[in-house]
Amino acid sequence: MRAWFLAVPLVVYLAVFLVFPVGEAVRLAFTDSVSGTFPSLESFRTIADDGLFWRALRVNLALPLLAVALELVAGLGLALLFAERLPARRLLRAAVLLPFALPEIVFLTILRSILTPRGYLSGALVGLGAQPVDLLAPGTFASFVSVALVDAWRTTPLVFLILLGALVAIPGEIGQAARVDGASAWRRFWHVTLPLLRPAIVAAVLLRGLDALRIFAAPLVLTGVEGMPVLSTYAFHQWSDYGDDGAAAAASVVLAVVCVLASVPLLRRRITA
């Protein structure tokens, strides 16, 4: 039966909407935005001369590491917590999933008013007799952590769901056998639970890590472009503040290359699996 035609619309659609834009991005990136010559490295020279681009690249490489680490710890903690018997389980679970369910832009704008120097967090600190804090000050380590933390807060529910799914799939007898052998709770977790969770953890790290590489809205809304730049917001800045399509395309081509390189381990897993 020639059923393959069923996949044709999808494949054609994806091809058109991935191949054409990528081709156009490369054309734009290698075109001189002033004279229109192609090929030209002028746009790459523009961004390479810009200190902001290099900051964006560095942040873009470091941010996913911190964000994913935070998510993993929080997600694993939550999964272990929800593997226990809890009262009002459904309600609690809905509350845990809530940050992920809020539209991203809603979550980020309210977080900005929480973290601004005279925001709700500083207000709470002052109420407790402490000093107000500015966690979004441009270029500071604090703002780097804030952006990672906010992104982790919003996406932890995903990691939580992946890990909880794997956790409840572990047969109860394994844990009981270990308990009978007299293993402490910590040793049981370290030597029994964690190795069994490994595939799910690896999957979560790869998925979320690749998502975090193209992070856009969180640094844009929380710190503005210059505060904690990443490649996506840098490209947006070239596009909207300077109207330089070539430089914007060049920066996004760099990001695309980073993403493709980072996804190699993922693709390798697919082949070996």
């Binding site: 601004t116 120097p117 005279r118 925001g119 500015d134 979004l136 000050a137 441009p138 270029g139 500071t140 710190t223 503005g224 472009v225 210059e226 505060g227």
Partner: peptide, 20 residues
């Protein structure tokens, strides 16, 4: 204010409204 590095018309006006 170090946040001047990112202020534009609207954000600087908002910071002032907050007394910052």
């Amino acid at each position: 204010d170090p946040r001047s590095a990112v202020f534009k018309e609207a954000t600087i006006a908002e910071a002032m409204a907050r007394g910052e």
